[in-house]
């Protein structure tokens, strides 16, 4: 059975069809359409600010700053407790977008690369609206463009422009961008890796572990064409690999079973690795509305925020984001 993107958690709202979305030429317009459409579907105002929010009490220990003592609790219970607040500072997000040749495949009128760029732009635009800093790193067999995480309208335009820039790369090397991003970002950040992951994932785990060890939160978005998911071709032909240009004669009808099995195994291995490392994993088909991806991303963020909140809780806002 072929892998299928998880869409069961989608709200009942109607989203823009991916095909229609991709007909919009401007990447910025596409991202804006997704984000605003998503919000209107969620019936939530995008204009909420940030505030200092109470999270919990802690027993006072000598050495704590007495300014944070909750005198009211002391009055009621005669105990010294320190009042702790959630450190709700701006998020730093780094979008890692695969621009290798395999991403140039597309059977629905748009390529995986265009879909991935739109996804990255959507995330970037969404985070920009939230006032978060967004960075970008595009790669194929090497790192192509790098924009450090910043906030600002000019920076967003620069990011969108970098996403639209064609890539000259050929193959995919997932290790290099992860290594690079590990060495580049010092402060805790969210790293969203958008790729088709059609490459061996042996080295990937080690790099992700290193990234996680640095305190970064990682999300993987695997973008695949519907044809890639089920080898939905009819005619036998010489198939040519977009990256290696290797050719082989193939009858899809005969090869379908073996292909889907191998692809399932590959995706399952990827999913298992993510689960093991506590990384969120999203499989996206290019005919799937981008709002669902955004929705999954936010859902996952929310879930993970609850799950790992203690881990990121700092004292008195002194920690890095």
């Amino acid at each position: 059975m072929a892998v299928a993107p998880a869409t069961s958690r989608l709200p009942s709202a109607k989203f823009i069809d991916a095909q229609t979305l991709m007909n919009i030429r401007s990447l910025e317009l596409r991202a804006r359409a997704v984000v605003e459409g998503f919000w209107s579907g969620m019936h939530r105002s995008p204009y909420h600010g940030f505030s200092v929010e109470f999270t919990e009490y802690r027993q006072y220990t000598p050495g704590d700053d007495p300014r944070y003592l909750d005198w009211r609790v002391y009055a009621r219970s005669d105990r010294y407790v320190i009042k702790k607040y959630e450190d709700e500072t701006n998020l730093r997000c780094h979008l890692l977008v695969d621009q290798s040749r395999s991403m140039n495949y597309g059977s629905r009128g748009h390529t995986k690369s265009a879909y991935a760029a739109t996804l990255a732009a959507t995330l970037g635009y969404f985070l920009h609206l939230q006032g978060d800093a967004t960075g970008l790193l595009t790669f194929d067999d090497q790192v192509r463009d790098y924009l450090p995480a910043r906030h600002g309208a000019g920076h967003l335009r620069q990011l969108l422009h970098a996403l639209e820039r064609p890539s000259a790369g050929r193959t995919t090397d997932l290790a290099a961008p992860l290594e690079r991003i590990t060495s580049l970002i010092r402060r805790r950040a969210l790293v969203a890796l958008v790729s088709d992951f059609l490459t061996p994932i042996d080295q990937l785990e080690r790099k992700l572990v290193a990234l996680g060890a640095c305190g970064h939160e990682v999300s993987l978005f695997q973008v695949l064409d519907p044809v890639e998911l089920n080898l939905g071709l009819d005619q036998p032909a010489m198939f040519e690999d977009l990256e290696s240009e290797r050719t082989l004669y193939l009858d899809p009808a005969a090869a379908r079973a073996a292909y889907t099995k191998k692809l399932d195994e590959h995706c399952a291995a990827l999913r298992a690795m993510c689960r093991k490392l506590g990384i969120s994993y999203h499989l996206l088909a290019t005919d799937q509305p981008l709002e669902t991806a955004l929705f999954d991303f936010l859902q996952d963020r929310l879930k993970r925020g609850r799950q790992f909140r203690p881990a990121f809780r700092g004292s008195n806002g002194g920690g890095s984001a």
Partner: peptide, 9 residues
């Protein structure tokens, strides 16, 4: 000839 993203599978 049909172009395909990857022949790895």
């Amino acid at each position: 000839r049909t172009l395909f993203s990857s022949l790895m599978f």
